[in-house]
Simulated scan of single mutants.
Amino acid sequence: MLIKGLIIVLGLFCCQLQAQEPVTLQLKWTHQFQFAGYYMAKHKGFYKEVGLDVNILPAKLSMPDSFDAVAQGEVQFGIGHSGVLQQRIAGKPLVAMAAILQFSPYCWMVKDSSDIFHARDFITKRVTTSGKRENTELLIMLQRSGINTDRLAHYEGDNPTRAWIDNKVDAMQVYVTDLPYYMAQQGIAHRLICPQRYGMDLYADILFTSQSMLKTTRKQ
């Protein structure tokens, strides 16, 4: 049903383009199972059935979000997080099409031996750097609990995972589908502190396009 839904959404926007019109979908990260629905749709030929020749492009690790690329017409579709709403409010001509994940996959991960149990416990703690364009709910969660996030000690190194393992940081922002599982496999006990627990239930992996793309397909 998920794959069919993706095809329907893309088809509604692009069904009037010329036959096999090439379009590019830029992911929010490197190729991985998280985007399986898009790969399967291409493998099964579902895109071709609605006249689409879809190129699936991995994100640039130096700048993983595709907001600018979509807004400027470099690619036709992108996958983002709640940051797409911020970009829209800021004036970027972006249009959300579908929310694939029904909750935010971002959480803080702390070791089981940590004295951090609640968001209010983050005061004076050392954390990995939080992106302000994507996972702002992690910072807002702390702010709502009385934490001045500007006074947190942010780790700025190249390997936050190793820093967390070596106890150089107290809390690390993680994507719940990968690092927690990896740490469990390594025998490192941990727990997660997530925005949903504090009333912040946001959509994620949002498929979006540009306002100009929407207008073009409507005219055609």
Rank of each mutant, 00 (worst) to 15 (best):
Q173V: 09
V9Y: 01
K219Y: 09
H118M: 12
H154Y: 15
L152E: 08
G157V: 03
G51F: 03
K215A: 12
I123N: 10
G199P: 07
K219D: 13
L27G: 06
D65H: 10
I7Y: 02
A189M: 06
L202G: 02
W164Y: 07
H81R: 09
Y155M: 01
R218M: 10
K168V: 03
K28Q: 10
R191N: 10
L27F: 07
D115M: 06
S113F: 06
G78H: 05
N148P: 02
Q186R: 13
G146C: 02
E134D: 11
R126D: 05
N148C: 06
E137Q: 14
D166A: 09
L139W: 08
H31W: 01
L12C: 05
I123S: 11
K215Q: 15
F33E: 15
A184Q: 13
D201P: 00
A184M: 06
S210K: 01
I8G: 05
G157S: 03
S210A: 05
I100G: 01
T177R: 08
Y38H: 09
I8E: 15
L17M: 14
E137F: 08
M63W: 04
M183Q: 12
K168H: 11
T217W: 04
D65R: 10
T30E: 15
I89A: 11
I56N: 03
S130W: 00
Y181R: 13
Q173W: 04
K215Y: 08
F13E: 14
S82V: 10
L27H: 06
D178N: 13
Q16Y: 14
C194F: 07
R144P: 03
L94P: 00
D158F: 03
I140C: 01
F13W: 08
V176I: 14
A41R: 07
E134R: 10
T217S: 14
S66V: 02
V70H: 03
N135R: 04
Q186C: 10
Q16E: 11
F35L: 02
M213R: 08
T216Y: 15
Q143N: 09
I7R: 07
F208K: 04
Q196H: 12
R197S: 12
Q16L: 14
R162N: 11
I89L: 14
T216I: 07
T217L: 03
T124I: 06
I123L: 10
A189W: 00
I89E: 13
P22F: 04
I100K: 01
Q32T: 09
D158A: 13
A96L: 09
K219A: 09
C107L: 01
A163K: 04
M63L: 11
Q34N: 13
V50I: 15
T161P: 00
F103C: 09
V174H: 01
K28R: 07
Y175S: 08
Q220S: 08
S145E: 13
